[in-house]
Amino acid sequence: MANNAITLVEAVTQALAYELNADPDTVVLGEDVGVNGGVFRATAGLQQRFGKDRVMDTPLAESMIAGASIGMAAQGLKPIAEIQFMGFIFPAVDQMITHAARMRNRTRGRLTCPMVMRAPFGGGIHAPEHHSESTEALLAHIPGLRVVIPSSPTLAYGLLLAAIRDPDPVIFLEPKRIYRLVKQEVPDNGEALPLDVCFQLREGTDITLVTWGASTHETLKVANTLAKQGVSAEVIDVATIKPLDMNTILQSVEKTGRCVIVHEACRSFGVGAEIAAQIAEKALTSLMAPVKRVTGYDTVMPYFKLEKHYLPSEAQILAGVQEVLEYA
């Protein structure tokens, strides 16, 4: 591994710094993002480098962070707001639904809302209550938003740049369990990756594994295990949850005939349900087995003593895959 390899959270910082430097309209705001550099250090050093006007510590009020960002965005700034943990995003969701997601539509394009709302999400770091939820499906249900989740330093850098440059509001959810899990060499070249498309992380022919965020890591490990057993698994990282690139998933399922969807969020009414529904609508005849979901349970995210039993494990993913492979 190269010496200048960076983690996912460092890739976020690198993307923020790149765009703050390249585009004078960008501003970063949120709780503790300034001097402290964010509780996860995602904004480390940015206020020192770009000043208090561009990297703003806000009062502690999430609806305000969203609402003020909408006002700034309507004036042509590109606010990049941090919500400290996804568990605290709900007051801000009000403004995102009632205004950010519909400002362009209700003014027929006169006012727009090019903003990004970043939030660390998901379980697995033994955090306090309300710090470990995965409610991306709730956000993905809102017309007018984009919901983007990176699964690696490379994707975090390229997708965050794309999110900031997108002319519409983007919710950018960072899987904090893998903030520092792996390092990759991520050239600071300012090159964005495309939104609205899935990324194929591994090519295969026997089964399609669809996932996103931190679960990509367990899923890739399962794919390795399967390879040793002579099963060729294709792994797709959805990356942009909304709008959902079903074409990539459908092409894969048409090839493999089998699909397992893995997500950390609870199962019912989740993003996995939407993917399964679309497979049923558009590729039913390609299926050799019912689509299987391996997910969190339909309960409150347990406090950390039990969280590892909530998160989909490699064993559970593998069991799901075996079930689908053995169906017929």
Partner: peptide
């Protein structure tokens, strides 16, 4: 949505100030 616009005004004012 009642009072939601108060926050937009603070954002607009922040842009003016910056």
């Amino acid at each position: 949505p009642i009072a939601s616009q108060c926050l937009h005004a603070t954002g607009v004012a922040t842009a003016f100030k910056l």
